[in-house]
Nucleic acid binder design. Structure first.
Lengths: 342, 342
DNA sequence: CGGGGGCGTGAGAACGCTCTCACGGCCGTG
DNA sequence: CACGGCCGTGAGAGCGTTCTCACGCCCCCG
């Protein structure tokens, strides 16, 4: 084709060794930054590596080291919605950031249905990765148990519903909801409603629990009229808000379990002629980008994404290195971000 | 720990062979569905495999077969916006669908900055995957050239700006834009404006070209006032629409190069008291989910995502199997979806 | 009844790397 | 001057597969 001859396959350690005039072992040492190499040998190898544009064969290396230096983030989510979730993008960014200083790679695996989940499970068990971070917002996958049984290092992103013996990292959803509700109480609000998340998601449950706990601590009686379940989407939030206005027109505050839902609620309140925060105070959750752009900008609860992803990696690598003692879990503190809506 | 003894490492082919009372080769044959195995031997091996819950070691296998049965979709995009792009989610779904009937795995790699791009490049070149589908909406990555030089099978998702010798698949953006504009013309619209995509994205350029071509074919003179550049986001579309109304208040139609931008434009038209499609007809592009929910539902241009992903896989696998002749490219036809906005 | 052609099987050599071990050479010490 | 130790190096044995051969066996046909 062009002037340069195209090889069919990549050069091997042996070829580098021959070109550098040393043994395979020495080339390996240089490639792996072993200190026990003379400067001359190192230089010769470096030159040969560059000349052949040698790249070590990971398969061969992994076969002996039993390490792939790759971890997988598997998204076990039925619908594609997960991608549009800004929370998800932040997790990916955070994980990549936490791995930036290492030579560990992050790959994403999606598993929408059972079939794909099985495929992902096989991929993982075949030894393509050293460990797995599993993001599964809804409950009941088989994947976790399968991976645990296979002895695969595993960290869940988000607390599991049941108490399986598995490592996980989550934000303090309950505490955050409590913070939000207490803020509303401190503001003198009397009738505080809530748009909750789905009952089959732990985050939804925990945020609802925090809201209830704060109210009960303040001596409020539980009023089932005041809680409507949403689905974490803007449309769902709008519908829930309509229902809420219908059920309890006297409400003067709403704790909404996600920012997109809060944006939907804001729209409905607007349309209903209620001023925010004058008539109704609104607090969201997640500190999504949309919270800044909403009108008015949303007071919300923020999660320490950076810290969470960092911890996930730590817990996972501890398992990979077999230095983990027992099953570790971690709850990261959430924080209230005051803006204009409450 | 528990009753079952936990092994440190997974069983090997040899152990299965011993348990089944056959040789390593026979086990390999069974595992790989070779027909040349007696039913009895096959059954014995099956049982042994199940008993040990044996999973073949991919590293060892790949070392000899030089195949990983894995392809990567790399997202070479600076910001995280790509995740929230519904187009992207569809691509992932489509690719997974196209691979569902095979035993080929799809992994996603993100590469936000140069550093991560380099990491992804290394990952790929080390032999973790058989081929790469590259999605890079903006121009000028080094990755493609690097992969081509390394002889890595590669298909671009979207036509590249320059004419590199690389396989790619794209929608007929130009044709779609033309369709949309011709529809507007046929509707009797006189002053047809356009909110274009960014100039550094091929999709933006092509859609603009199609719009211009349709107008010019219809004998319209090019009017630079009538084109404002957007950034493919809703906010950007709104801003562009404002500018357009300012520059050319007499316009009676707009071809918007993406649905999110069209939604923004709709909002602004609404606020300006223009009825759609009465005063101003609007056509979008992409047939994003949001196009259905907008008010009025958006007439838009749809891309054959299913076909595109299917073709990408075909072109890629042809390269992997070395049955590809030359550099293949494919433009998939777009179609106008008539709804209420035009 | 003998020979050829499957067909099922097993032995053993790869695949490209790491890692242990042993071996010279040089230093410092007694 | 002799000897122990360390340092750079290379030989060679794996790692868990696949794949090529060669080898019996049985069956069919002449």
């Amino acid at each position: 084709m062009t002037g340069t001859s195209t090889r069919v396959s990549s050069p091997t350690l042996d070829e580098v060794a021959v070109l550098a005039g040393v043994s395979r072992a020495t080339v390996s040492r240089v490639v792996n930054d072993s200190p026990r190499v003379s400067p001359e040998a190192r230089e010769a190898v470096r030159a040969a590596v560059a000349a052949l544009s040698y790249v070590p064969n990971r398969m061969a290396r992994s076969l002996v080291t039993r390490r792939t230096d790759t971890i997988a983030l598997v998204l076990s989510e039925p619908d594609a919605r997960i991608f549009s979730d800004p929370f998800f993008a932040s997790i990916v960014r955070g994980l990549n950031g936490a791995l930036a200083s290492t030579d560990i790679n992050l790959v994403l695996l999606t598993a929408r249905d059972e079939r794909e989940q099985e495929k992902a499970g096989r991929f993982v068990r075949q030894g393509h990765v050293d460990g797995v971070i599993l993001m599964s917002l809804h409950s009941h996958d088989v994947l976790p148990d399968e991976l645990i049984a296979a002895g695969m290092p595993l960290v869940l992103c988000g607390r599991p519903l049941d108490d399986r013996p598995v490592a996980w990292v989550d934000a303090d959803n309950c505490g955050g909801a409590r913070l939000a509700t207490e803020h509303l109480l401190a503001d003198g609000r009397r009738t505080i409603a809530s748009i909750s998340g789905p009952r089959d998601m732990v985050a939804g449950l925990d945020r609802l629990a925090g809201y209830r706990a704060a109210l009960s601590d303040a001596g409020h009686e539980a009023d089932p009229r005041l809680v409507v379940e949403g689905d974490f989407t803007e449309g769902g939030g709008a519908r829930a808000m309509e229902e809420l206005l219908d059920r309890a027109p006297e409400l003067d505050a709403v704790f909404v379990a996600s920012d997109p839902m809060a944006v939907g609620a804001l729209r409905v309140l607007h349309a209903a002629g209620r001023s925010v925060p004058g008539d109704v105070a609104v607090v969201g959750f997640d500190d999504a980008p949309v919270a800044l752009r909403s009108d008015p900008p949303l007071t919300t609860v923020t999660q320490p994404l950076e810290e969470m992803t960092q911890v996930m990696i730590e817990l996972l690598l501890a398992q990979v290195d077999r230095t983990a003692d027992g099953v570790q879990t971690r709850v990261c503190p959430t924080r209230l971000v005051r803006r204009a809506s409450a």
